[in-house]
């Protein structure tokens, strides 16, 4: 069943800067869609456009989520969707958590924004979520502040916050880019597990082809605001049709396979 349909999405930032240019996306319930591209490809702008969080930008086109058109939705209804049905995890968990509040408060706050729940009940939900995402001693850790956590733990908190309302769609914007590789492996494992158990669809935005290969069902390769290639992950990785996709796959130095003396490079266009 189709959960999210994006048609001809265009985002302008004024003075002729077009971040996204006629983008189409489709994401089915419970599926993982990888959106890959380099910086400036428009992938993060797309995710913010879906949530209606872009400021100072002109958004046109269609964004249909579960049968509702989001681009024309009023702020109030959009706010109700955010967090409850579409949640988001961002790249840098330290700057994305408010340093002045405990992690449990910030999770409980998300819960209470959409549920009639007392402080105590919401706190319990927060502790349960912390346990769910693998934070040891959740009772004690709940009362800690973000700066007392490591990078990986902070990203777990972000995920707990995003998933406490069991959203239909999780938008993860470079969720592991700021993390070390062994911590990245932990977080990707967690996302895999949560997807299996909660059934949340994930829009996974990343520049890392490896992350997409391990997690996504479908992939869209973005370049300069366009989707240059799309398809099932296996097809795109095995038989990339577009030179840009081929270049993107080839230019990343790998830890396995033959070792070229020089890496093939993408000829930058534009």
């Amino acid at each position: 069943m189709t959960l999210l349909t994006v048609r001809d999405l265009t985002v302008d930032f004024g003075s002729g800067i077009r971040a996204v240019d006629g983008l189409d996306l489709d994401l089915d319930t419970g599926q993982v869609l990888g959106v890959v591209g380099e910086s400036g490809s428009g992938k993060s702008v797309t995710s913010l456009a879906v949530l209606g969080l872009l400021q100072g930008a002109t958004v046109s086109g269609e964004i249909r989520f579960d049968g509702r058109e989001l681009t024309t939705l009023d702020q109030r209804s959009l706010r109700r969707l955010r967090g409850d049905r579409i949640a988001m995890v961002f790249q840098d968990p330290l700057s994305c958590l408010n340093p002045y509040y405990t992690v449990a408060f910030q999770i409980a706050e998300a819960y209470r924004a959409h549920h009639r729940a007392g402080r105590r009940e919401a706190h319990k939900v927060a502790v349960r979520m912390l346990e769910r995402v693998g934070i040891p001693e959740p009772e004690r850790r709940a009362r800690c502040y973000p700066h007392e956590f490591s990078g990986g733990m902070r990203q777990r908190v972000m995920i707990a916050m995003a998933l406490c309302l069991e959203p239909d769609l999780l938008i993860a914007d470079e969720p592991t880019t700021a993390l070390d590789v062994t911590v990245q492996a932990q977080i990707l494992d967690l996302l895999r597990e949560l997807r299996r158990e909660v059934g949340t669809a994930i829009m996974l935005i990343t520049h890392d082809m490896g992350v997409v290969a391990g997690l996504a069902d479908h992939v869209v390769v973005m370049h300069q605001g366009h989707a240059v290639e799309r398809g099932a992950v296996r097809d795109v990785f095995r038989r990339p049709q577009q030179p840009y996709t081929r270049g993107l796959l080839a230019c990343v130095p790998r830890i396995d396979g033959p070792l070229p003396h020089r890496l093939p490079t993408l000829e930058m266009t534009g």
Partner: peptide, 23 residues
């Protein structure tokens, strides 16, 4: 090494992964 994601869906899903505990 086992934590580095490989840009190859089959290899990536088939491989043994050693996920370190804790921080």
């Amino acid at each position: 090494l086992s934590a580095v994601p490989l840009p190859d869906p089959d290899a990536e899903r088939a491989r043994e992964r050693i996920v370190l505990r804790g921080d």
